[in-house]
Structure formats: C-alpha cells, structure tokens
Amino acid sequence: MSKRVQKNGRFAFILFALVGGMIGLSFASVPLYRLFCQVTGYGGTPQIQAEAEPPSVSERVIKVQFDANTNPKLPWRFKPLQREVTVKLGEEALVFFEAENLSDKSTMGRATFNVTPYKVGLYFNKVDCFCFDEQVLKAGQVVPMPVQFFVDPEIFDDPTTKEVKTITLSYTFFQAEDETVSDNVTDRSTEVEVSLRAVARDVVNTF
C-alpha cells in the first residue's frame, strides 16, 4: 500500500474514533445531565439530604407553597393538605399530601418534582418524601403522603436568591409502567403509617 494510502487510512481511523467519541459523549450526557442538575440545583432540582444534619435554625422565615398535579392517565386524586407553611430557615418541616385511588383496581404511581423559582433548588433540602419510591394504592384507598424538608439559611446570603419570599414545591404523579399490581403487594398504607410515626417521633424529639 502506498504511503499516501496508509496516511489517509490512519487519519480516517482517527476521525472515525472521534465520531465514536461524540456518540459516546451524547449517551454520557444522560447521567451527566442528571448529575449536573443535582449538584447545581438548576431546573429547580432540590437537594436530597436523607441523613442531613440541618444547619442551625435562623429567625428569618420563608413561605413554602405546595402544588400537586396528576397525569390524566393515573386515576388518582392527589392534593396537598395545606396550601402553604411559613418556616424558619434551617428548621425541618413536615407537610402532607393526600392521594386517593379513584378507580376500582390497584394502581402504581411515581412522582416527579421540582421547586420554583428554579434558583432556590440548591437551598431546598428534602429529607424524606414519597417521591423516592413507587407508590401502590389499592382500589379506593386514601393515603397521606409526608414530605420532610428544610430551607438552607444560606439562601439569604446568595445575592440571586435573597429576594425570594415564597418557594413553591410541585409534584406530578404519573402512572408507573408496571401496571400488573396484584393485591398481594405489601399494604402501602401501613408502611406509610409506620414511617409517619417515625417521622413524627423525630420531629417531637427535635423540639
């Protein structure tokens, strides 16, 4: 093979590798994008702090309002049980949503969530919430769903977020794909009750 053909071949190989690299990068963007949002709070992605030590409680307060959406495919009624709470910064708060399965079969739901305005995502910390797992509701079942959170006092030190007086926490419940839910599934409401008691205990102990 002539030198020129060899040179051309080698160069082409490098370029093909570049193409492969770019395809790889585009698939890598999937976890990278999620990671980026989690780390920066962009897009109103709250921080998940399952075992966080909440920072010291400040005297400043902020209002948190609640919003609930249900995708039309899921035959549930899903609403917040309180329109809003006013919390001290750094103070852990416990709020409830309620979901009712309006249909006559068991269905499984999964929730997505975000906070608005988006820029407060970095300072909104969720300690515990129902959104981490799928929820199964039997026909006609009504279940309270707790959310435990705190707002980091550093929100007032950040020049872009210090003017925020109200945060909205919004959930959307979708029907989870694995529809074949048998009634042998663990009674979710008992689980919820148990975790509720545990949370209530924690809250009582904190104060």
Binding site: M22, L25, S26, S29, N71, R110, T172, F174, E177
Partner: peptide, 26 residues
C-alpha cells in the same frame, strides 16, 4: 454524531421501553 445519539435514544424510547425523555419514568 450527537444527533445520531439523540435519535437513537428517541427510537429506543418509542420502541424498546427506555425512558430518556419520558418524565413518567424518570
């Protein structure tokens, strides 16, 4: 190649049960 990657993801979302762009599945 980035378009190709995205198109492939859409194709698998549509036909093979992946959930790159489907909020219901994350």
């Amino acid at each position: 190649p980035v378009l190709a990657g995205a198109l492939t993801m859409l194709l698998t979302d549509r036909n093979f049960g992946t959930a790159f762009f489907n909020p219901a599945e994350g």
